[in-house]
Design a protein around this nucleic acid. Structure first.
Lengths: 146, 146
DNA sequence: ATAAAAAAAGACAATAATATCTTTATATAT
DNA sequence: ATATATAAAGATATTATTGTCTTTTTTTAT
């Protein structure tokens, strides 16, 4: 459904949001350890998110990543678009270039329905909300119980 | 959503089904031309579908691919599973190995709902039905109008 | 029997995605 | 001011996917 990069991005952002408060920054190595992702690959992903304004960062001692407290909540849709690209959730289900409502591929209508549901879900769920649920213990980001 | 190989597979099968009748076989080059796909890559895909029993083939003059008339209709789900693998539609949305209803990732419930809809759609739609709609002119497999 | 047509199989090439390692720039604390 | 910690950037490696080309096998028609 999403690329690994995108999954790492969502996990990383939820982790950051869940650890946040009072302007503290979360370091890259802590993030990678927390979400079980390759450190340097995660660094590249964070750079993209940073350039897109989804996450903020500061270098140097006590530096790291954080979410702007005063900005609007970040939706999953924004993250998916930032990492997998805007076309990822808009193309034809069968890969036809000209597919549209008036010139549909064989699965156009059925596929559109499902994808509209996906888009709605991605647009309704924010990193901040999901992080809150994580903090409450209602979900987990780890592969192991330890 | 699906790999290009899978999209080619679905397009190829719908095309074959739409051209079928009275035991005629559809050649690879005709298929590739009809669905705008690379010939030899399509050949590999057809081989997989053939080994999985989704499509039948005969070699030699007047050979080609066809669907067994007496077999059950082929669902999109079977095709996706054959090409993209059984895990493609079952793993955690965020890539966690241990994610489950009782040990959910942050998007588990929301994601499961959408994917269940996708699975239902893939299971309800058959190649034969979609081919019939194509034959009626209600959809297209081509990128261009020519 | 033989030739031709077609799928099957195998080898390879190109591209994209994922992952690792090294170097550089920059901000902070001392 | 300096040292240090950290993100940013760059270079390279690995793997998976997609695509192309060639050879082999099998079937059919002659």
């Amino acid at each position: 459904m999403f690329s690994k990069a995108c999954k790492y991005a969502i996990r990383a952002l939820i982790y950051i949001a869940s650890k946040e408060g009072e302007g503290n920054r979360i370091g890259l190595s802590e993030i990678a350890a927390a979400i079980d992702s390759p450190v340097h690959f995660t660094a590249k992903i964070m750079q993209i998110l940073s350039k897109q304004g989804i996450v903020s960062s500061v270098k140097g001692p006590n530096g790291g990543f954080y979410l702007e407290a005063e900005s609007l909540p970040v939706t999953l849709l924004e993250v998916v678009r930032a990492i997998d690209g805007v076309h990822h959730l808009s193309g034809c289900g069968l890969g036809l270039k000209k597919c549209s409502d008036s010139f549909p591929c064989p699965v156009h209508h059925e596929f559109s329905e499902v994808r509209d549901d996906l888009l709605r879900m991605l647009n309704e769920n924010t990193i901040q909300y999901l992080a809150h649920e994580l903090s409450l213990g209602n979900s987990t980001l780890k592969n192991s119980l330890t």
